[in-house]
Amino acid sequence: MNPGLVSAEASVAKVPADLRQVGAHPDHWYPVAWSHEVKRGQVVASSFAGEPIALVRPEQGELYALEDRCAHRQVPLSKGNVKDCRVHCCYHGWSYDASGKCDVPYLGKGKQPNGVRTYPACECDGIVFIWPGSLPAAPPPASLGAAGDKAYKTRSFGRVVNCHYTFMHENLMDMNHQFLHRRTTGKVTPRYLGKRAGEGWMELDYTFARPDSKPPLGESLIMGSFRLDTSKPRDRMTIRTEYPHQTLRFWTAGEEPVLSVWLGYTPVDAEQRKNRSFIHLSVRRPKIPGVLDLAWPVLTWFTNRVFEEDREIVEMEQAAYDAQGSDWNQEVFPPIRDLRELLAKNGRVMTPRQI
């Protein structure tokens, strides 16, 4: 038995269940693909928490999402082809429209079998979202951070990360983990400023200081730190979990953030031990035209390296959880205990079959 198990349980006493057994609640919009991955006249496979979903983009008309199985022999519709706004199964040619209604080419009218489930779908700032829940869909997202703002230059990236989505929320929200990035970002001293919270959301403020070193070039290009007195904590970062997504904004001066990040984590498998991360990282364009474009390769390298360091550590956390069989974490930072409670309250405890 973990010798710290009692104190660990006490530190998360308000959490109603093992947080890693709380699944993402399906009654929300979740990103499942980049828009460019679903080309005209194609059908693409995706998933939400083990539910196979086919994304269909007809030559004419809007993208739609169906359960990724043919009602006939259960083979994936994503292996089929798209014609005349319908997706045709690769096996016997059964076809489905955006409503999931089925048509069998060798049966007469009135003899058609039941179709397949449909999912509300939308696109926003280059990302395909689906609503996998049973409740009527809420209004779709209108914007994702500053990705649609021409005052910013945005890079979009992400990948499948082998961990429960809650590890992602905790990692970003707890800036005390900057020690992890010391070889990439240098010495950084974060200072927690405070918290705001409401129904289904919370956000934390931090400021930072660099008493012993200058910022690396990648960070300077993002934050404009090369023109700041970095010995004094004068910047501000706000990190927000608005279930089920996260945002990060960073100010160095003025009312508009110099950095705006939107992050979505969609569970891939039924056990929810993997998530596909979608990230829009937007940097405000400086007054001098072209400067940011020239610096973009360095910025890309820098942000990729930070993301990879985070990915490796959260996958280690998941591996430890799997080996131990339960959550042994001893969380001592009160805002992260509050975050864990928020995630548990807004998620859905998984069934034994899922776990």
Results as ranks from 00 to 15, higher is better:
Val38Met: 02
Ala49Pro: 01
Asp125Gly: 08
Val128Asp: 00
Glu62Asp: 12
Glu51Gly: 00
Glu59Asp: 14
Ser78Phe: 12
Gly108His: 00
Ser35Ala: 15
Ala33Ser: 09
Tyr91Ser: 05
Leu77Trp: 07
Arg40Ile: 07
Lys109Ala: 15
Pro113Phe: 09
Cys124Gly: 03
Val87Tyr: 04
Leu107Glu: 06
Pro52Tyr: 08
Lys79Cys: 09
Ala98Val: 07
Glu62Val: 03
His72Gln: 04
Asp68Val: 00
Ser47Lys: 06
Arg73Ile: 10
Ser47Ile: 05
Leu107Pro: 03
Leu77Ile: 02
Ala121Asp: 06
His88Gln: 07
Pro52Ala: 10
Asp68Asn: 11
Lys111Trp: 14
Ala45Cys: 04
Lys101Gln: 13
Tyr64His: 04
Glu67Ala: 11
Phe48Ser: 09
Leu66Ile: 00
Val104Gly: 10
Asp68Thr: 00
Pro76Leu: 13
Ser99Phe: 07
Val128Leu: 06
His92Arg: 02
Gly41Leu: 09
Tyr91Thr: 12
Gly100Trp: 00
Ser47Met: 04
Gly108Glu: 15
Arg40Phe: 10
Ser35Glu: 10
Arg86Pro: 00
Asp125Cys: 10
Cys70His: 03
Ala49Glu: 01
Val56Gly: 08
Gly61Phe: 14
Gly110Asn: 11
Cys90His: 11
Glu62Ser: 05
Arg117Leu: 14
Cys70Phe: 08
Arg73His: 10
Lys39Gly: 05
Leu66Gly: 09
Gly80Lys: 07
Glu59Arg: 08
Arg40His: 14
Asp103Trp: 09
Gln60Pro: 05
Ala33Gly: 01
